[in-house]
Simulated scan of single mutants.
Amino acid sequence: MNFVVLNSSKNWGGNERWLTTAVNGLAERGHTINLIIRKNVSHWEKIHPSINLIEAPFTNELSIKTKSIIKELIDSKTDILLSTKRKDYILAAQIKYSNQITHIMRLGISRPILKRDFIQRYVLSHMVDGIIVNAEALKSELLKYDFIHKNIHINKIKCIYNGYVLSSSKKEQNINKVSSFCIRSAGRLTTHKGYDMLLKSLKNLREDFYLEIAGDGPEYSALNSMIKKNNLQKKCKLVGDMKNTIDFFAGADLIVIPSRSEGIPNTLFEAWSVKKPVIATNVGGVSEVVDHKKDGLICEPSVDSIYATISDYIKKQEDYNRLGESGYKKLNDSFSMDRMIDNLENYFDIFID
């Protein structure tokens, strides 16, 4: 198959991590991939050598230059136009209208579609042929909207769980580890990731601990201020971006994913890949993947619930020792990269004549 793929991201995140593994897997199976990315970004160095990387300005949803670049790549051999960000959805919709090409969207996180968001509603109603989500919960949310249910067949909204390649890296990063119990988390520092709830939950934690959060983003200053305001400087630290989250997690005793909204977080699989126990909030598709008290602990996305679950884990570490090992086994058995690529190929096949 021949794909044109759009990604307008300025920063590396879960969406870009998924896209890298997806296009690399498809390229390794002989599919042709043209990946159009934003100019002057540096997070695509791990792309398969056969993939054609093309830069575009992505200045806005109506960018004439970007649309021109996309149109130049689309010909009679192009099978699928795949969009992965909100700006990309709208650009791809315009290309679908003018070129009559199959347009597939990929959604990796739950976000409400507001009544006043007429553009997104129109795109989803008339300019999308199929939608890929990474959790059944996201599919269920989409089907609650009448304008989606009426215009996109239920079989063309497909849940495909993220695949993961187990890393051989086991080098532990012990950054400022000043406690016998190290909690770590990683992700974009945005409101939906819930790091403010995590910090508030630790304010009254009596057990000995040290928290490190890896990542960067718009909430960096606010979170740093919260650490100082609550006198947590000796207990909590923002350590900046980590090129290798696996090594970062390998040096922890516990991984916490405190999100307000998610599909299925990539950091869950990264923690499992180094056999680390995970506490994750019950949002998106987390409960589809994590079996509570068997391969992870699930709590509600609230300060009190996060606090209670972390405290319980620290007190009962011996009872929960198996969680990381069980997560590793599940990751290896059920979320392989080959399975994800098989599912993607089977899904795309239904749109090919």
Rank of each mutant, 00 (worst) to 15 (best):
K77I: 00
R86A: 14
P49I: 14
V278S: 06
N176C: 01
E141R: 11
K193D: 07
K67G: 03
G13S: 12
V178M: 09
Q233C: 12
T190E: 15
P301K: 05
K144F: 06
L143S: 04
N2R: 13
M340A: 13
S68E: 14
E207R: 12
S225G: 15
S259N: 08
L124T: 07
H48T: 09
K85H: 08
F3H: 06
K46D: 10
S336A: 06
L114D: 07
V165L: 08
V278T: 05
D304W: 02
G194W: 00
I306C: 09
N174R: 10
N15P: 05
D216P: 06
I101Y: 05
R17M: 02
Y164C: 04
G240T: 08
L202S: 12
I109Q: 09
N162T: 14
E55L: 04
I160D: 01
V303N: 01
V23H: 04
E325G: 00
K39Y: 10
H149Y: 10
G285K: 00
K171S: 15
Q173A: 10
K203Y: 11
T281G: 06
Q100T: 10
N134P: 07
T102N: 15
N174C: 06
K203C: 12
S50C: 04
L232V: 09
N2I: 03
V165F: 11
Q100Y: 14
K293F: 08
F269L: 03
R17C: 05
H292W: 00
D319I: 07
F248R: 00
I175A: 04
L107I: 15
K71M: 09
V4S: 07
Y347D: 06
G163Y: 02
E212Q: 15
G327D: 00
L81N: 07
R17A: 12
I227K: 02
K144I: 06
Y145A: 09
D295A: 01
A27P: 01
V274I: 07
S50L: 11
V123C: 13
S336H: 03
G13Y: 02
S261G: 09
G327S: 03
I80E: 04
K170R: 14
R184W: 01
S9Q: 11
S168E: 10
D312A: 11
C182T: 14
I152D: 08
I132H: 05
